[in-house]
Design a protein around this nucleic acid. Sequence first.
DNA 1: GAGTTTGAAACT
DNA 2: CAGTTTCAAACTC
Length: 886
Amino acid sequence: MDSPEVTKTASTPSAATETAAAASSIGSPIVQESPFSNYLSNLSPIKPVKNSRILPGYADLSSPPLVFTSPHIVSKCEASSLQRPQCPQKSGPETPKDNVGISSVDVPPGLEKCDSYLSSKFNVDSEKDGDHSSYTKEQHCSPSGVVDEYLSEPVDTECTDCVHSANPITETEPSIGPRGLANLQTIVLNADTDKEAPTFALPTSGQGSSNCVLSSDGLLYETLSVQNLHANEDYYDHVEAGLDDPGVSQLYRGMSRRCLQFEEAQGIGQGSVPAMNSPNSSSDPMGLRLPFSSAGMENSKILNPGIAAPSGKRTMINLTRGLISNRSPNHNSNARLSIPKRSGIGLHLNSIVKALPMECNVNESMKTHLSENEKCSTQLSNSVEKITHAEEKMLENQVVPAVVSATSDSLLTMKSVSALQSLEPNETPPKKRTLSLEQCENYNELNQSSPKKRRKKFTPDGDGCKRCNCKKTKCLKLYCDCFAAGIYCADSCSCQGCFNRPEHEDKVLETRQLIESRNPLAFAPKIVHQASGVPAVIGEEVNRTTPASARHKRGCNCKRSMCLKKYCECYQSNVGCSSGCRCEGCKNVFGRREDYTIVEEIMSSTTSKDGPNDIADEKLAGVDHSNDLFHADSSELESPAPFTPQCQFSEHGNDAPKSGPFSTRYLPSPLSHMSTIQSDSKTSSPTQTGDSLLAEIDCRDMEFTIAEMIGELSPKLDPISGICYLSPQRTASSSAVAASPSASKTKDLSTNVPRPQFEVGSGGTHMSSSIRWHGLPVTPMPSLGAGKMIDDVLMEEEDTTPEILKEACNPIQSVKATSPNKKRISPPHAHSKRLELGSIVSGGLKSGRKFILKAVPSFPPLTPCLDSKATKLPPTRKSNSQQQGK
DNA sequence: GAGTTTGAAACT
DNA sequence: CAGTTTCAAACTC
């Protein structure tokens, strides 16, 4: 906890060792254990972990549903984010050599859910550049399946053992593609597999050791050996360089801020990191400002005692020091600083990126390696490039639905780097360490709050740095962007009576804990990256900047801004709205809610038999069919109704209330149905972010599933099949709606955006329509429909993403786990059970995925989902009523 | 720069 | 859990 001490540790080699020891506690095998070191480790905020294992804390963290419920798989997709021009990419100089091998890990289907699987290795030869960069992809499915866990899981860097071995780019699991699951990419830098060369393995995968741990916070903790540090440093350097580049978006800077205080360290930024930064920080390129670990201080403590500890400043400072120390010759080669990348809430994303660098193991080699760092950096960049290319291919070929949780973000950062390169090779081919757009975005958010150094929100301010202007909250509430971001307010802030300063660290921490106690996710990064190989949601086309994958965890609740103004958190973050949003009349340029998009389709296609609601109309109007999803399938879209049939079940009875309208096979206005669906999706999505994430992750899958479901199912309304199929959906939708406790859901339902429901009976659903759905990349829909579908019916891909998916998918669980958002986790992949529709599986599915509806006993008993639905139904009514009331 | 609007956060 | 209030940012003028 004691940050100051941490600094000590960092500074001294011994400290490094100590830190390593601490890390060992985490799970680093290598860590030296000496009482002293242990002591130090305890003191030092920074825990040296060679191999960060999943911290127990993590498990805990993960466990909490609210925390990252849905692990988003880090998707390469983010690579899509690459788009973000903003993110400065480091280019060239760094690119070069690739001693470091980066491996992208494919996330196994399960992983997708879990998402956090990133295994990456960083093996860098301090002495020599890692000549060998092995580039391997591993897919880990976190067996645990719980995304949260994944998230929470710290990454062990050391585990070279882990999957990645020398094999240069290898994908352990090609499977990703088929499922469309996002592949988690992990960059492995293997210069040479040093003994200590850390590797990231996702523990969750069950494969075993993972070096990287994802914290519930979504932070990726990595333990790096000194060598790694070098690599990281290089990485950061590159990043910084990128920042320096005019081209680099402020966002990027912002990211850097939080993650690293490059400015100070390198002076890239302004370097002034007022309160937060310790004097030392200036020198530290790595200096992080992590006043808080978002998710958990706890986690951080666990994972990174040092970081977590005390005050953000200290931690920041400590980290920086640690880095410095690393560089300093003094560092013991052995000693490692494992700086867990804390994902403080705000930091998450940043943390990822930073984490890598942060996690430097301080080795003497580090010293020597400092020079090497450059090499490493170049190597890394090279490796990254490689990776990115590979990933690009992967992505292109495969849709990676995986959603990246906040933690994933970190992972993403890793990936993103590669992805970015891969994705935007053209744009910034050289920059290897470029961050993905998503990352950037995330950073932005995070940065926004980041106080001094770079809060870089992308604000109109030239800097993009934002500063708070709190007057009454003393900057101790989430109203304060700085506080919310887990950073101290900067001098530049205009806040009054600010307590969010290092001097009030205690108070800040206390407050923070209180808030977290109420809402564990309060400080979690708001934006989750979904793996998006796929163009995410409808809006994505529009999304220029944001990777489709990125989504706001909680979603927005905009009523009047149409999600076209910064009032909208989604929009502000440059991310599209998702099923988790309860916005009305969403026109988010970065991606409208699935529901809306769906609605649009419906509207367009059907031309609204029933006059869509005004809102709906507006939405429709707003939505251009050209947009994304529909575009793709424009022809299909036109087709009358993409309606999915709803099954009318006994469950309906449950649903009935809601469904009242729903009950009708076709809702008078499809839109209304749609709305319901959306709501469902939203509602259904377990509030837990993780879940939601999962749901999102699977969006495509969902699409497919839905399409399949619809197409196949609808036609097959057979009592049996039909029931099964439908029941789940309907129930899901209806139930979901009803179930969705969140008022927001109700809002959604009631209102403005009516969403079409799928009714089986209506028969309206045409195979084609279903197909369309398939085609539709729309995340929302898929999520909705899919989510519902999934929930209700267990749809599994043939591939199986087993447990994780199941878990995630577990409708009940997901549903039960009510995350604040109540997002439903769509187990798109959930494979576990399929009711085979027999032929149902539509070969036509884009993905080629086959979902078998495992017996969804259509009825209540079946899947928890169904049950949940039934149970939930009542609520939906309420919600509806409420909405109506509104 | 002041005032209004907006939606999240906090409170009840 | 839902509704209301408070808050600060975003926006408008």
